[in-house]
């Protein structure tokens, strides 16, 4: 169905190009039956707002700044939609990675927080010697009376994923947390349906329009 092909650029990105192209297509395919519909460019603006920057944070840290940076990460994570127990879990995990960087990674590090798809991702980068004996992969916490060794295990246990890049020039530990699904945007869904059901074929489409419902919306 041609309409689906028209709508896809919206779903794939937020560039102005596809919206403009569809809008001009609407003009060419103007039919009485479509005049009551909002212009597709407006539909695009409703359905797919600007890229979400909530949850983005990028900062260098040393021991003195860890607590304040954890608070900043918590606020950004909340803004990105993380709540309740997962938010608390994430805060502890981020804390553990920062502590590791300060204690074992040369006394300082860099934190990068971002939203990637449905996930909140936090990279903590340090310039320490890395794990000389390979990256540890404990299956459980150390015995109760052990003084240390819980940090990385906690970070891994409390998050949905943890990746460790162990290099001679430093270590990057990346943790992620799946963000809760946002409530459906009814207007956006309706607008998308309007596009997929009725959008006309574009001039310059790679494939010529096929017979079928395509014919119904062309002049």
């Amino acid at each position: 169905m041609a309409g689906v092909r028209q709508a896809m650029p919206y779903a794939g990105g937020h560039t102005a190009g596809p919206a403009g192209a569809v809008a001009s297509g609407h003009g060419q395919g103007d039919t009485p039956g479509m005049t009551a519909e909002p212009a597709p460019s407006e539909i695009g603006a409703v359905a797919f707002p600007a890229p979400v920057l909530a949850g983005a944070l990028s900062r260098d840290f040393t021991a003195d700044g860890i607590t304040a940076l954890r608070h900043a990460v918590q606020a950004a994570a909340r803004q990105a939609g993380l709540i309740d127990e997962p938010l608390d879990d994430f805060a502890v995990a981020v804390q553990e990675l920062m502590t590791n960087a300060v204690r074992h990674g040369g006394g300082r590090g860099r934190l990068e927080l971002r939203v990637s798809g449905d996930n909140l991702v936090c990279d903590v980068i340090d310039h320490g010697p890395g794990f000389r004996d390979g990256v540890p992969a404990p299956s459980g916490p150390p015995p109760a009376e052990t003084l240390g060794g819980r940090g990385l295990w906690l970070a891994s246990h409390l998050t949905d994923s943890m990746l460790i890049s162990n290099g001679t020039g430093g270590t990057t530990v990346s943790i992620s947390m799946c963000l809760p699904a946002a409530p459906p945007d009814v207007a956006a869904v309706q607008a998308l349906h309007a596009l997929t059901d009725r959008a006309p074929a574009m001039p310059g489409d790679e494939e010529p329009p096929s017979a079928g419902d395509e014919q119904e919306v062309r002049p």
């Binding site: 805060a91 502890v92 804390q95 553990e96 502590t99 109760a144 009376e145 052990t146 003084l147 240390g148 819980r150 940090g151 906690l154």
Partner: peptide, 16 residues
Amino acid sequence: TFIDSCAIGVLVEAYR
């Protein structure tokens, strides 16, 4: 309202 592995280490050390 918040503890991390450092805090746990402190408590375990005191316990020992």
